[in-house]
């Protein structure tokens, strides 16, 4: 058997990881404990897409204090596990959001905040906006323009339920370079 480069030090890492993953999937207790950990450690990457960011700030502020729920805005996509799209996605921003999403380690979730990313909101016929579902597999929508911090908190609670049940988002958009619809957005005129 030919040893691959790198496996000299570690043995066959892929194999080990696969086996461990299968064990966790089969073992109900293990998956329960892990999901518990996930539900109380939801760290969104520091990414503000539009004006709903002010309500996100208010939500992490003292009055609503989302850190109570284990929801802590954190600087870096590598260490966080939620993309929180707060507000309108423009074409320019959508690329960034997709990049941030791809930089994030699995498992990861998406909360889309605001009417603009849900169906366009008052910017529905703008020439430079896209919907969240074209970019990312959204788990939870939080409607409102802007949503109140309580609504965001409720969205997080719903996401927790979803994680506990182990559900995944049904919508799996392709990566941005293959997303034809987004390319055509500018052509509405």
């Amino acid at each position: 058997m030919v040893q691959e480069e790198g496996s000299v030090y570690f043995g066959n890492l892929d194999e080990i990881a696969k086996k461990a993953g299968q064990f966790i999937k089969k073992n109900r207790l293990a998956s329960k404990v892990i999901n518990w950990g996930y539900t109380y450690s939801l760290w969104p990457a520091y990414l503000v897409t539009a004006c709903c960011g002010t309500e996100l700030a208010a939500a992490s502020g003292p009055r609503f204090d989302l850190e109570r729920l284990g929801f802590l805005s954190y600087g870096n996509p590598r260490q966080s596990n939620i993309v929180l799209i707060d507000g309108t996605l423009t074409i320019k921003m959508a690329k960034v959001v997709r990049t941030v999403w791809e930089q994030m380690p699995e498992p990861k979730w998406v909360i889309a905040m605001g009417a603009c990313v849900l169906d366009g909101g008052i910017f529905w016929n703008s020439y430079s906006t896209v919907l969240a579902r074209d970019i990312l597999p959204v788990d939870i929508y939080v409607p409102g323009c802007p949503p109140r911090p309580e609504a965001l908190a409720r969205g997080i609670m719903m996401l927790k339920e979803k994680i506990k049940k182990g559900e995944k988002s049904l919508n799996q958009p392709t990566s941005i370079s293959e997303n034809k619809e987004m390319r055509e957005v500018g052509n509405v005129g």
């Binding site: 074409i91 320019k92 703008s126 020439y127 430079s128 390319r183 500018g186 509405v188 005129g189």
Partner: peptide
């Protein structure tokens, strides 16, 4: 964004 360059969105013949 790059996609909209050269389309001059605020001209009147750019119709939403």
């Amino acid at each position: 964004p790059e996609e909209l360059l050269g389309k001059w969105p605020l001209r009147k013949d750019f119709i939403l």
